[in-house]
Design a protein around this nucleic acid. Structure first.
Lengths: 283, 283
DNA sequence: AGTCAAGTTGTAATTTTACTACATTTGATG
DNA sequence: CATCAAATGTAGTAAAATTACAACTTGACT
């Protein structure tokens, strides 16, 4: 885990002087990694051994090891998850925080992914007669996006954001069909029911949802995507982005499986759009 | 620049013994960051000062500083932009590449954003009588997502993915209305026309699009979002994610502007969903 | 309030680590 | 093969981190 997050979360664990050290480091981590233990001790108004004890409390081997961890946290593009937006934040602050926590969430999501399952899902998708993408609420737009991607592959794709249409569509599904259900929580009742209907018609049901959820239990195959969600805002944010990126991965896997010739087909689809656009040169 | 890459590229610069050091480090960088200069010297069969000289040749201040740089290169989640998916990539490789390049794209997008414009857009959105989100193709799902977010704020929000509906909606817009148009290229003809119609009806038109595009020219205010897009795949991927994250930023700015009391309102909206879900405990 | 124990913090000595100055080696060139 | 510059190593020095221990807080219980 990112050591900066760990510091801000472990406040309770620290003693008074250790907290002083934590403050100084959090306030200026860049300076911290370039300081010696003596300098840092002086900056925090504590003794050197206190800094050392602080490092060990964070399960590092000592000060140099701690600096290594800190350096990694500070590495470009390794933002910390727990940058919650606060009431007092200005536009520059909340913009930065949201982007950074989104990136961090992607990193976490990537690590939680099971590549073998992705591979099998790509297999199933390439062999499907018809692919359906269903989601509700925030996940509806993800399904919508998936439609947009897979539509270009010249495969029968279906997307509905209406529960009844989703049900009817699943009623008519058959063994060769793949139904992809998207839900962050995996606890949306009507989606679970749809999974059951689809399974009842022998369709392959793939869930993009969280592990061990009711929806996951009803699926033939689950891509579990555990994303740290900032619940302060009462809106799904990072989970959606992770789902979309996963869709990108699946779509990419799909095109790779289909080979180069198929890729040319994609280019043609894209070229078709040209007429609807203003030429780049003409501006 | 990543110091590991730098080492492998600077081979010519090194002396014979220094190259030995480079080899050992490249072979096992994880070990290197946890070794002292003495251990590393022994592993490379060179003297300690040689290791030190090696570090300085790479423009670091000395061995400890070098280790810091190395640690940063090794931090996971340090994405390189130029990780294009290749024909021969397996699932683990393309998954990693897509996630990493998405993260990198977000970082680039964040840096290209103008915070002042974001602030003004948030201003306009909070004051709007009605907010419309329109996009076509891949950007339609982004607009769809925006609907989902702003809908929770108890503001009149409109979203259509049908050109005619979009036009009609804009025809009826007025001075107090804000129309948000989303397009990566900014060269989709019908969207440009819609911008003109909306402007003609005195609505405020906000573009989430690329700078200097035809669409940008027709907007009252443009949030330009320049994203490095992997064109190999002929599909918009990173641009969409950046747009969505921007929507998150706008939505967050919106709620912050409205204050704490408003946030409680959001919680109520979320709680309303409970009935449609399976309880967490019951599983 | 006084005492004691547990926990916290600092001082000073010790050990480890990195760096510097200088000596030796290597190998290329006339 | 003599010479010189570049490369490498040796040994000493300086700096940094860690340890052991002493002094000081804190708060519970008599």
């Amino acid at each position: 885990m990112n050591i900066l997050e760990k510091i801000s979360q472990s406040q309770a664990l620290f003693s008074k002087s250790e907290r002083k050290v934590a403050e100084v480091i959090l306030a200026n981590p860049q300076t911290a990694i370039h300081s010696s233990i003596a300098t840092l001790a002086k900056m925090s108004n504590v003794s050197e051994p206190t800094v050392n004890r602080f490092c060990r409390r964070l399960d590092t081997k000592g000060f140099p090891d701690f600096k290594l961890h800190l350096a990694q946290s500070l590495a470009n593009g390794t933002p910390y998850v727990n940058r919650h937006v606060e009431e007092s934040d200005g536009p520059d602050e909340y913009t930065k925080k949201i982007f950074e926590s989104t990136m961090a969430a992607l990193e976490v999501a990537r690590q939680s992914l099971d590549v073998n399952i992705i591979n099998r899902v790509v297999d199933l998708l390439t062999q499907a007669q018809k692919i359906s993408f269903f989601g509700l609420g925030a996940s509806a737009s993800v399904a919508h996006d998936a439609l947009n991607k897979f539509f270009r592959f010249n495969v029968p794709v279906v997307y509905f954001d209406d529960i009844l249409m989703q049900r009817m569509s699943c009623m008519n599904s058959s063994e060769e069909d793949v139904v992809v259900l998207i839900s962050h929580t995996g606890r949306t009742k009507s989606l679970v029911e749809i999974a059951q209907i689809a399974r009842g018609n022998d369709a392959t049901v793939i869930g993009i949802t969280s592990k061990d959820s009711p929806l996951a239990k009803e699926c033939s195959l689950v891509i579990s995507l555990d994303v740290p969600e900032d619940t302060d805002m009462y809106m799904p944010m990072a989970s959606r982005i992770a789902q979309l990126t996963l869709i990108d991965v699946l779509a990419t896997g799909f095109t790779l499986r289909r080979g180069t010739k198929f890729r040319e087909n994609l280019k043609r689809v894209k070229d078709t759009l040209r007429e609807s656009r203003y030429d780049k040169k003409q501006q």
